[in-house]
Each structure stands twice: as structure tokens, then as C-alpha cells.
Amino acid sequence: MAIEKVFMVDNTSVIADEVLSHRLGLIPLDADPRLFDYISDDVPNERNTIVYKLHVSCEKGSQRLTVKSGQLEWLPEGSQLTMASPAQSGDNQRTYTSFGQSQQNTSERPLGVKYNDITIARLGPGQAIELEAHAVKGVGKVHAKWSPVATAWYRMLPEVVLLKEIKNGDAEELVKRCPVNVFDIEDLGKGEKRAVVAKPRSCTLCRECVRLADDQVELRRVRDHFIFTIESTGALPPEVLFTEAVKILEEKCERVISELS
């Protein structure tokens, strides 16, 4: 879910309307997209649209005001703005959404923003922002704001091998040299110590250990073991992102198989 439409009522800040709208679209929302439908026929309702309101002003003579993402107010009843065209006689004023029921009845928690401290704008004395923002469900290939993944990458599992025993002072120097604490000291008794590989997964292949003891330490990679890392924007936990991505991949594979058969 991401903000797609912004209805600007008043904006006297130094930020242009389109720039302000772009900033709003990139704010992660605390809403599970699996609970919503894709909007169709441009008919916003409680099943495909989340409405937020922002109305802040900086009084004349006061200090500059920083507008944060936490000031976006969720409107579970839908839009509060009436359409510009006048309603027919006897009809109620139409708004920009057609909610059949309140979203409080369908959501267990408020559909706010994920982080309340994202700076949207700064207002000077006498400036104000009043707008209504509509968030809808989308996919990342249309726009990055709909991508719940910040960064994803993989690397092969590092393998650190001690070719010879490294003892006593050399072992302590090896432990100090490693910036990510891959090595540790094992007490052999009688004042003897030796270096052991304690956390090979933490190795970044910086080769500091090899520079210290080239003929005693060897760095390798496990060719069939990959460490896959997913960073979330906050909309969904990384483990959920991985599960949903596997489901999408499975659907694509089934589609290809059905077309080839």
C-alpha cells in the first residue's frame, strides 16, 4: 500500500505540490496489503483505498514548524472532501470515496504510517498545508513506492580454515586483527592458548587475517551455500516478504509450465 493520489486543499510551503506528493508516496504505511484488493474502474472503497488527512499550520510570529509523517491522520470513514461539481437537488454531497462501512470494522489496528518521525516539510510563520491522501495497492514494477523491499542481496557462505595451529601471542594478535570477531581464544591449560574459528558466518573476506598470517589462514567460499538477506521498508516483516515472494515465483513457474504443456 502506498499513497497514489493527493488532493491538495492548501499548500503555502516552499515545497511544490508535486514534490510534496512524491514525498508522501514514499512514506511506508502500516497496512497489510494482503487485506486489500487492487483498485479497479477507479472506484475507491473501503476494500481498496486508505484515506489520510494532513492539516498543519505555523502561526505567524512562531518558530519554524517541522511536519512529520506521524501527523498524517487516518480517516476510517473515507474521504471528507466533497467533489467540486455541485450535487443535484435533494442529494447528499458526494466525496472522493464510496465507503460502504468504516474500515475500523475490518481492521484490527489503526492503518497509520510505519514510522512517525519522517520529515515531510518545514513550515515558516504563516505557512500551512492541508491535503487528503489516498493510498492504494500496487506492485513494485509500476513504481518503487509499492515495493516493500528496501534492499535484497546474497553472498556465498565464507569458510575460514586454519592451516596450522596459531598459539599464544600470535593467537591473540589474530583475534585483535579481525574487525568482525571471527576468531576466538581457546584455553589449552598450562598457560597454552590457541586461536579457533568461532564465527565464520560473520567473515566479510576483508583478508586482514591473511595479511597477518598468510601461510596459516586460508579464506574460501562454500559454492553451494548462499546467505540471502532481505531488508524491509517496514510495511511487512522480511520473513513474510520471503514467503510471499516464493508464492509469486511458484505461480509464475506454474504459468510457464501450463503454457508449454
Rank of each mutant, 00 (worst) to 15 (best):
C203G: 04
E250W: 06
Q103F: 03
K145S: 03
G70E: 03
E218V: 07
L26N: 13
T243A: 15
I50Q: 02
I118S: 13
A16I: 06
S57Q: 13
C178L: 09
R201L: 14
L260Q: 07
T204D: 14
M1K: 03
Y96M: 09
V240Y: 03
R220N: 13
T151I: 10
S21K: 01
H22M: 10
I118V: 13
K252I: 06
T229D: 12
E73F: 14
T151S: 11
N181H: 14
G140E: 08
L205P: 02
T243P: 00
A16L: 11
K199E: 14
L219D: 01
V180G: 03
E59M: 14
G90S: 07
L65E: 04
V256P: 00
K114H: 09
E259M: 12
R122W: 02
A171T: 01
F242S: 04
E244W: 04
G61E: 09
N105D: 12
E251S: 08
S89G: 05
R155K: 13
R223T: 08
V217Q: 06
L81R: 09
T229Y: 10
L29F: 08
S147Q: 14
S102A: 11
N105E: 15
T204E: 14
G25L: 06
V246T: 09
Y154C: 05
E250T: 05
V180S: 05
V14Q: 07
T82E: 12
